[in-house]
Amino acid sequence: MTYKLILNGKTLKGETTTEAVDAATAEKIFKQYANDNGVDGEWTYDDATKTFTVTE
């Protein structure tokens, strides 16, 4: 399945997608991606749209 991440960081904003077997796997990938890019904030997930959002 395709999952989407919306980044609302102070210095980085944008979107990315990943292919993952489930939401938990996608979350791990996205949290590593956000960490690698210096984004740390409040996480939400919308199962209907398979979208994670992180807001600093």
Score class of each variant (00 low, 15 high):
residue 20 A to Y: 03
residue 10 K to R: 09
residue 32 Q to N: 09
residue 54 V to Q: 01
residue 18 T to Y: 08
residue 27 E to Q: 13
residue 32 Q to I: 11
residue 53 T to R: 05
residue 3 Y to F: 10
residue 42 E to Q: 09
residue 8 N to L: 13
residue 47 D to T: 11
residue 39 V to D: 02
residue 53 T to L: 08
residue 5 L to R: 00
residue 11 T to W: 15
residue 18 T to Q: 07
residue 48 A to F: 14
residue 12 L to T: 09
residue 55 T to M: 08
residue 27 E to T: 04
residue 56 E to L: 05
residue 26 A to P: 00
residue 19 E to Q: 12
residue 45 Y to V: 02
residue 9 G to L: 14
residue 10 K to M: 12
residue 22 D to A: 04
residue 27 E to K: 08
residue 39 V to N: 03
residue 54 V to N: 02
residue 22 D to T: 06
residue 39 V to L: 05
residue 52 F to N: 00
residue 15 E to M: 04
residue 11 T to L: 10
residue 48 A to M: 15
residue 28 K to F: 14
residue 41 G to H: 02
residue 48 A to I: 11
residue 2 T to S: 07
residue 2 T to M: 12
residue 52 F to D: 00
residue 37 N to H: 09
residue 12 L to Y: 13
residue 49 T to I: 09
residue 8 N to S: 15
residue 35 N to S: 11
residue 46 D to W: 04
residue 12 L to S: 08
residue 33 Y to I: 07
residue 36 D to F: 08
residue 30 F to G: 00
residue 40 D to K: 05
residue 53 T to N: 05
residue 50 K to F: 06
residue 15 E to S: 11
residue 1 M to W: 14
residue 43 W to A: 01
residue 37 N to Q: 12
residue 15 E to D: 08
residue 47 D to G: 14
residue 49 T to M: 05
residue 24 A to L: 12
residue 49 T to H: 14
residue 38 G to D: 10
residue 40 D to W: 06
residue 56 E to R: 03
residue 11 T to S: 11
residue 37 N to G: 05
residue 24 A to G: 08
residue 46 D to K: 04
residue 4 K to Y: 07
residue 39 V to M: 10
residue 25 T to D: 07
residue 23 A to M: 15
residue 15 E to I: 05
residue 21 V to M: 12
residue 41 G to S: 02
residue 54 V to I: 15
residue 54 V to Y: 03
residue 16 T to K: 12
residue 44 T to W: 08
residue 6 I to P: 00
residue 13 K to I: 11
residue 17 T to Q: 12
residue 8 N to V: 11
residue 9 G to W: 07
residue 16 T to D: 04
residue 32 Q to F: 07
residue 23 A to K: 14
residue 46 D to T: 05
residue 8 N to E: 08
residue 16 T to H: 11
residue 20 A to F: 03
residue 26 A to F: 01
residue 53 T to G: 03
residue 50 K to A: 13
residue 19 E to D: 11
residue 12 L to E: 13
residue 7 L to P: 01
residue 38 G to E: 09
residue 33 Y to T: 04
residue 23 A to S: 11
residue 4 K to H: 14
residue 48 A to Q: 14
residue 8 N to W: 05
residue 9 G to M: 12
residue 42 E to T: 10
residue 25 T to V: 11
residue 30 F to Y: 02
